[in-house]
Design a protein around this nucleic acid. Structure first.
Lengths: 340, 340
DNA sequence: CCTCATTCTGCAAGCGATTGCAGCATCTGA
DNA sequence: TCAGATGCTGCAATCGCTTGCAGAATGAGG
């Protein structure tokens, strides 16, 4: 059962060289005669040798692993980013470690666990899991390497979108259609992950209002998770209030889907009885004709990977912050308010 | 910058004990006096000590890591499973390594990379990435530990659903509504990952037909990926054929969404002009009123985690195969065929 | 033919934990 | 008070690979 697996020494013996040479040959390092390299490769193949990773990592002091913290790995947005991120870093020879980080305790734990000191990972990417500037600085001071997606901390590289612009343009299209009571389905991020996106989009929402000389009714704002079921309940409540909104801005498409369900429950047609704008441009948004502010999600993962690989490369620079464009995608969920 | 990080030796010195004792104390092993343990914990906290993982793994010969192979981590089904899986194994103190495995080459590479010998992971879970029985046996012969989700190989533990029953019940409801030309949107799995699910569901589709004394028209079957865009094109073609189907059975809800789009493109109403059944019970299915065969996706991940942890425990048994129930969820996408 | 530069290659010292075994206290019961 | 348990600790050997340094071999130039 536990057959003796080949070690580097066995390969060395078989090839008639030292372990040092085997190590170099197998990793394609220079200073190995090509004849020798061939011999080593043949011996390794012959013995079906696999280097032992922990040993290599211990000796080399590097892990070739990138750890990701994700509030909810099953959410479309996160899954899409992780997919893109994984594809890129895997191509570069890194492993992807995935951690669900749903609470600030878990976030704290994640940071501690993945400091350079533990040798668990070479770098870290944080998705939507905002960090105190202080913790971030401490992290890099210890040699930590990180990029954040969805929020920005000076000390860390980041990839973001302009979330106040997102909130603004979503609100504006509604305003432009003469809506005056616009509900806001805000996003609650886990418990207290300092989730900054909702407040920024809300700022855009408020900004658009004030530009139009209006003040939004605070009663029209409710927070829910990105689950459509929860959003549905919230929208339901909103729509059955004494003075219901004629339109809803949902901070993510999944919430908008929930709002659609609520509208259907109440016999409201979209956009005749209720206008709706979301954010993300979820795969399914097109299906249901949802007008939304698209952010290029997979691209965010790809860019993050790029930043990471760059940081892990030979010449490190200061943290970089890239902000991606967003665009309003007009479909069929926005129209003029119904005239009663 | 590279401040001297604390090693186990530093903690030992600070606590006035040996590294052996520190190691035991920190891991909660027995045979440590509680006073000593306190002293060690205090010293460790004081120095902000983190064990070096590669070193620990090398010495202990165990990695506390589980590697997952997933064809497409961004797909809803996979993301949901990974989320559930991750939650459970993280709770048990394991790390989750995620690998996208889109081709059979990558699958092969994944297996090689994650054999016990490499010390990359303690166990492996394969999602929808079927394996030759031979490779599977070789894997366990070398001490590999694995559970598969979505397909079954004798040598490995597995969690599955009865996919022919799935195909059968989806088809039956259509047949029961007097549909006689039922289109089949089949799933093509990457290139050649031996993706067995489509053929099983297709068998159920054929079986239901023959039970009813019918033979399905092969021209009504088309394969696409699970992208709704691709499914949309395929359904489009199907519906514009000379003799279009009056109903479509889509092997996953995402495909069904694509079919819905196609129907809309062509001005067909559901279920008046076209009936539709999917599989999965995707989050959004409810939103669009899709009748579907639900499989409990998150549960599959949870059960897989359970099997894994059990296999990694002290007493290993033979591989276990658990098959989860499915259920037909009736919504609004199935009706009688239109009478021309 | 000699010297110097240029490649290769091997030696051996780490990397930072874990753990079997032996040794020393302390405790128990007679 | 003494023998035998029992409970804590420490010693030191490992785990398997990487890498700085020095030595050997080869080639080029004069």
């Amino acid at each position: 059962m536990t057959d003796p697996v080949a070690r580097i020494g066995d390969v060395a013996r078989a090839a008639g060289v030292s372990t040092a040479t085997v190590s170099r040959a197998l990793r394609g390092l220079p200073h190995v005669a090509s004849a020798t390299r061939q011999r080593v490769l043949a011996a390794a193949a012959d013995l079906d040798y696999r280097p032992n990773l922990p040993a290599a990592r211990l000796a080399a002091g590097t892990t070739n692993t990138i750890a990701t913290a994700v509030p909810d790995p099953a959410a479309w947005f996160n899954a899409t980013i992780v997919g893109a991120l994984g594809r890129h870093i895997t191509a570069a020879g890194y492993d992807l470690l995935l951690s669900g980080v749903a609470s600030s305790d878990e976030r704290q734990r994640f940071i501690e666990l993945n400091g350079v000191r533990s040798g668990r990972s070479d770098a870290v990417v944080l998705i939507d899991v905002a960090l105190d500037a202080e913790i971030a600085s401490a992290f890099v001071a210890q040699g930590g390497c990180a990029v954040t997606i969805g929020f920005r901390t000076p000390a860390l590289s980041s990839v973001t979108v302009d979330n106040v612009a997102v909130g603004r343009s979503a609100t504006e299209i509604l305003l432009d259609h003469d809506h005056r009571r616009i509900g806001l389905l805000s996003l609650s991020g886990g418990d207290s992950l300092n989730f900054s996106i909702p407040s920024q989009r809300a700022a855009g929402y408020a900004g658009a209002h004030s530009t139009a000389g209006l003040t939004p009714d605070p009663a029209l704002t409710v927070s829910t998770s990105n689950s459509w079921a929860e959003a549905r309940r919230a929208a339901h409540a909103l729509l059955r209030a004494a003075e219901p909104p004629s339109a809803i801005f949902a901070m993510c498409d999944e919430q908008a889907f929930g709002a659609m369900l609520a509208a259907r429950d109440l016999g409201l047609r979209i956009p005749d009885d209720l206008s709706l704008v979301g954010v993300d441009d979820h795969d399914q948004s097109r299906l249901v004709g949802l007008t939304t502010v698209r952010q290029h999600v997979a691209t965010q993962g790809a860019v993050a990977a790029e930043l990471l690989l760059q940081m892990l490369g030979p010449n490190v620079g200061p943290p970089q912050h890239v902000q991606l464009d967003t665009e309003l995608i007009i479909r069929d969920s926005v129209g003029p308010p119904r005239i009663d």
